[in-house]
Nucleic acid binder design. Structure first.
Lengths: 241, 241
DNA sequence: CACTACAGTGAACGCCGTTTACTTGCGAAC
DNA sequence: GTTCGCAAGTAAACGGCGTTCACTGTAGTG
């Protein structure tokens, strides 16, 4: 029943494997994350890893889950530094934390949010990576809901929303925040903000703004300054820290 | 001087190689685009390809250039279907063409705009792919400039622009449209629009909106409807064609 | 203490990019 | 019209990859 000594040892090894994989990812790039390299680093041989993961792809999926968990923790940490009632501060903080984390962890970010690898054949059923991604999204969503509850901002009414969008928004709402009377307009605005935030971060991190800018940060702040008033928040410059 | 028979044959082979590589990319995904597979498909052997390309990475860069050229042609085609004076129509057309092309060519899009492959060590000097990308960007930029010339929309004055941004905008402006008095505010708004457009398209194509939406098109149209008035344009629904 | 289940190994298979040494046959020059 | 250079293409090999399989030894269980 309880975890035997074997179980604990096994869990520790699993952790060591994913940690090693991640370290190689960070230090040498995605192509260097091979089973043989991981095993070599751990003082064992590649086939041994198959005792812990069915394939290279599944190992990577586990790494993805770990990274999502770390990113989520980082966002929470950034949030906790903001005074309780300061919703503008919280939203700006979480957006900036996200960008800064992405910036400081480019290769990990690319693994989470880059073009999907052809190993996309991941079954959804109880996928560790999928769960972690869900929790990650929850940080933003729940902050958004708190914001709406405390100080509702104007949102389109249901019949102002594109009919082709309504059903999708409803499904997403009922799946993530079941049994609620949350207006669909809130969900729509949440997704619009999310697209702008992650879109901007991805373009920057993947270098797709380099054709024009070598420091996109002011553009990012400009976007935050545009988004804040939509949500009834006041934009503030970041702490110079 | 003029191209000899040899030269023509060689050029034809280069074209056949990139075409084959691209077909494999489309049909079997990025991992299947190996030198051996390309050669096999062409009835030759892998080392033979080294007569035409220094490495696998350089071959891919050439494919990228080809794809950019095709995409650019597609955008021009979409533009040419819009009446001469209809600037709203042109901007909406080019944005929608871009999204639809991306959608219909996911794997090619991913090669152009995905997380950069670790072969990013491409020297900029006279790079075919880089040139083609430049031409691609030019489609949007020149449309934007035409728009501004014909019907100037409000833009921030130079001293309303973040000082950290001004220099970058100036450098980009002077590099792409030299010897002009184009206000930096136009460049800023161009880049803001570009970030929103490409950000939205990338998230959608890479499947990063699937957590909420299975048909993001209405969200995309919503974005266009937001952008149009900023540029003094009237939003119109797409032709149902 | 016996034994089994499991962690880990070594060898092998078929891929990959790339290098090397080599053949072959076309095109140009005499 | 013959000769010759050079480019196109090949076969073999290297090291690395993911993965499979048959195996060993040992640590934990009964």
């Amino acid at each position: 029943m309880g975890e035997s000594r074997r179980d604990r040892q096994r869990a520790a090894t699993v952790q060591e494997i994913t940690d090693t994989a991640r370290r190689i990812l960070v230090e040498e790039g995605p192509d260097a994350v091979t089973l043989r390299a991981i095993a070599r680093e751990m003082g064992m041989t590649a086939p041994g890893l198959y005792r812990y993961f069915d394939s290279h792809a599944e190992l990577l999926r586990h790494v993805v889950g770990d990274i999502f968990a770390d990113l989520t923790a980082e966002l929470h940490k950034g949030l906790s530094a903001v005074p309780e009632g300061d919703m503008s501060g919280k939203l700006l903080a979480v957006a900036r934390s996200f960008r800064l984390w992405a910036f400081a962890h480019r290769r990990e970010y690319a693994l989470l949010f880059g073009s999907p690898l052809p190993d996309l054949a991941h079954r959804k059923e109880a996928d560790f990576a999928e769960e972690s991604a869900q929790r990650f999204g929850g940080v933003f969503l729940s902050l958004f809901l708190e914001l709406w509850r405390k100080a509702p901002f104007p949102v389109p009414s249901d019949d102002e929303i594109d009919p082709r969008l309504r059903g999708q928004l409803r499904r997403y709402r009922d799946f993530t925040v079941p049994a609620t009377d949350l207006p669909l307009g809130v969900v729509q605005i949440f997704l619009q903000c999310w697209v702008r935030l992650q879109g901007a971060v991805s373009l920057e991190v993947f270098g797709h703004l380099e054709f024009a800018l070598d420091n996109p940060e002011p553009m990012f702040e400009l976007m935050l300054a545009e988004i804040a008033p939509i949500l009834g928040l006041k934009y503030r410059k970041p702490d110079p820290s």
